[in-house]
């Protein structure tokens, strides 16, 4: 699978966030989106996931599929999409059922969350919540990962695990676009967004 984006432009509230952005990403490639705060990294990821409309430009997936782009994506944004009242395993089982995956146990083991799986998400630390959100990557198989600051709040061991997961995903032909300030743990091309005033 590969993705080609050209002439992307997104406006929010009448303000142009970025314009004329393009890149091409082939199977097994990663793209690190860099740039200062407010340069539109998160906006780009949301637009790629189909959560924001494009003001101009197009995104083409090859081979073409009938699925909407969002159905092929894992979008892991700043919000962890965890319900504080539900336990971690209930949260993950729900997102897996919704997104169409079933490897919940394996995901919890892989991210080292087995000890806290039965705790309500309200009692988890920031890093544990982040890991719970990233566990969706393992629980549900999707080819196109959109990760917004994936390494924030993670300890060194977890960063290593995420690095291994990303490496394995690329090895089977997956695609990753990650907005990040820290260097990614995999080899990635860079797309630097400027600040337009």
């Amino acid at each position: 699978m590969q993705i080609e984006a050209s002439g992307l432009s997104v406006e929010r509230g009448g303000r142009v966030i970025f314009a004329g952005l393009g890149f091409r990403l082939g199977a097994g490639e990663a793209l690190a989106v860099k740039g200062p705060n407010g340069s539109g990294k998160s906006t780009l990821l949301r637009a790629l996931a189909g959560l924001l409309p494009l003001a101009a430009g197009q995104i083409a997936l090859t081979p073409e599929t009938e699925a909407r782009r969002g159905e092929l994506c894992h979008y892991i944004g700043h919000a962890d999409a965890l319900k504080p009242a539900l336990s971690l395993i209930e949260n993950l089982a729900f997102s897996a059922a919704l997104l169409g995956g079933q490897d919940v146990e394996r995901a919890i083991g892989r991210l080292g969350l087995a000890a806290v799986a039965d705790l309500p998400a309200a009692y988890l630390s920031a890093g544990q919540k982040r890991r719970a959100a990233l566990a969706r990557l393992v629980a549900v198989q999707r080819p196109f990962w959109l990760l917004d600051e994936p390494l924030t709040a993670l300890d060194a061991a977890s960063q290593t695990v995420i690095g291994e997961l990303m490496q394995a995903h690329l090895a089977v032909g997956g695609l990753i676009v990650a907005a990040t300030h820290a260097p990614l743990p995999v080899t990635a091309r860079e797309l630097v967004l400027g600040r337009a005033a």
């Binding site: 189909g50 159905e71 994506c73 999409a81 319900k83 919704l98 997104l99």
Partner: peptide
């Protein structure tokens, strides 16, 4: 919408 679950809904096949 606040906790990001809406993004999950929008990226599901349902």
């Amino acid at each position: 919408a606040e906790d990001g679950s809406l993004d999950l809904f929008l990226t599901s096949e349902t």
